[in-house]
C-alpha cells in the first residue's frame, strides 16, 4: 500500500486527480447545481470542441513538435463542409468525410513544410495559421453561414431521457465524438507500434532516425492526425453553435495548448498521456464551471484559469527538480 502510494506520488496525473477530487467534493457540497446529471452533460458538450483538439495536439506534442494552426484548419473544414452540405444535401457520413479530408490535407501541408524544409514546427504553424486563416476570410469575405441543413441542425441524440422537470438529455453528437476521439487517440498511442514510435521520436529524434524510423512518414501521420481531429471538432462545434463563423475559432489555439500542458505533456516531446490530457481539460472545465456556480463574476474566471496554469506548471517544475536531486543522492 505504501509502495503504491509512493509510485502514484510520482505521477503527474495523481496530483491532477487529487486537485480535481478536492474541487468536486467542495463544489458538490457548496453548490446545488454542480453534482447534477444535467451539469455533467452540459460540461461535456461545451468542452468537447477543446477536448477533441487537445487529443490531436497531445499527439503532436509527444512527437516533439507543436501545431497552432489547427483553429484555422478547423475553420476551413467547417466552412467548406457546410457550404457543400447546403448545396448538395449530403448526410452525416459524408460531412464528416469531407471535414476530415480537408483536415488531413492541411495537416499534410504542415508536415511537408516542417519535415522537407527543416523549419521549426512553431514557425511553420504560425505561418500556416496566418495563411489558412487569411485566405479563408479573404475568400469568404468573413460571411457567416446561418442556415445549416435541418438534419444537421437537429443533431443526434441516443438514449434520450426526460427527467421529472421535463429537461431532456442524452448521448449527443458532441459527447459521442469526444469519447470516440479520446479512445482512438489512446489506442493509437498505447496499443500500436506507431504510437511507440511517436513517443520515441519525441524523446530522442536523432536516436529514432538512427534506429531506422521513417521520420517523414511519422511527421505526416502526426500532423494529419491533428488535422483529422480539427476536422471532427469543427463539425461538432458548428452543430452546437448552429452556425459557421470563419472568425470565431482562431484565437482559441492557446486554450487548447493550456489544457494539454496542464495535463503534463512536455513541450520538449516524448512525454504525455491521454489520461493526463483528460484531467487537464477536466480541471479547466470544472474550475470555470465551479467559479460561475459559486457566484464569482464570470469576468474573473480567466484570471483564475491563468493562476491555476501558473501554479500547476510551477509545482510540476519544482517536483521535477526535487526528483532530479533525489536521483543524484541515490
Amino acid at each position: 500500500m505504501h509502495d503504491l502510494f509512493q509510485r502514484l506520488k510520482r505521477r503527474h496525473e495523481f496530483w491532477l486527480a487529487s486537485v480535481i477530487a478536492v474541487l468536486v467534493v467542495y463544489l458538490s457540497i457548496a453548490t446545488q447545481g454542480f453534482l447534477t446529471l444535467q451539469n455533467l452533460f452540459d460540461l461535456l458538450t461545451s468542452y468537447a470542441f477543446l477536448g477533441i483538439l487537445a487529443a490531436g495536439l497531445l499527439v503532436v506534442l509527444i512527437s516533439g513538435g507543436i501545431d497552432i494552426s489547427f483553429t484555422a484548419t478547423a475553420s476551413i473544414a467547417q466552412y467548406i463542409t457546410m457550404l457543400l452540405a447546403n448545396k448538395y444535401g449530403l448526410d452525416w457520413f459524408s460531412v464528416f468525410a469531407i471535414a476530415i479530408i480537408v483536415g488531413l490535407v492541411l495537416g499534410a501541408i504542415n508536415a511537408v513544410l516542417i519535415d522537407r524544409l527543416q523549419i521549426s514546427s512553431i514557425i511553420v504553424s504560425i505561418a500556416t495559421l496566418n495563411i489558412f486563416y487569411g485566405l479563408l476570410v479573404f475568400v469568404t469575405g468573413g460571411k457567416y453561414i446561418y442556415s445549416l441543413p435541418s438534419w444537421f441542425g437537429k443533431g443526434i441524440y441516443w438514449f434520450e431521457y426526460v427527467d421529472a422537470e421535463e429537461i431532456s438529455y442524452g448521448l449527443n453528437l458532441q459527447i459521442l465524438a469526444l469519447f470516440v476521439m479520446f479512445t482512438i487517440t489512446w489506442l493509437l498511442l498505447n496499443r500500436t507500434n506507431i504510437g511507440r514510435q511517436i513517443y520515441a521520436l519525441g524523446g530522442n529524434r536523432e536516436a529514432a532516425q538512427r534506429l531506422g524510423f521513417n521520420v517523414f512518414r511519422l511527421n505526416i501521420l502526426v500532423y494529419c492526425y491533428m488535422g483529422l481531429t480539427a476536422g471532427v471538432a469543427s463539425l461538432i462545434q458548428a452543430q452546437l453553435a448552429q452556425s459557421v463563423a470563419p472568425t470565431v475559432l482562431v484565437g482559441k489555439e492557446l486554450d487548447v495548448l493550456a489544457a494539454v500542458v496542464l495535463g503534463g505533456a512536455s513541450l520538449a516531446g516524448g512525454v504525455g498521456t491521454v489520461l493526463g490530457t483528460i484531467l487537464g481539460l477536466a480541471l479547466l472545465a470544472i474550475m470555470q464551471n465551479g467559479l460561475i456556480l459559486i457566484g464569482v463574476s464570470s469576468y474573473w474566471s480567466q484570471f483564475f484559469v491563468g493562476l491555476v496554469i501558473l501554479l500547476s506548471v510551477s509545482a510540476t517544475a519544482l517536483s521535477a527538480r526535487r526528483k532530479r536531486k533525489g536521483n543524484l543522492i541515490e
Partner: peptide, 14 residues
C-alpha cells in the same frame, strides 16, 4: 507566459 498571459488578461477583464 501562457499562464501570466491568461492571468494578466483576466485581471484586465475583471
Amino acid at each position: 507566459t501562457l499562464g501570466t498571459m491568461t492571468m494578466v488578461k483576466g485581471i484586465a477583464i475583471g
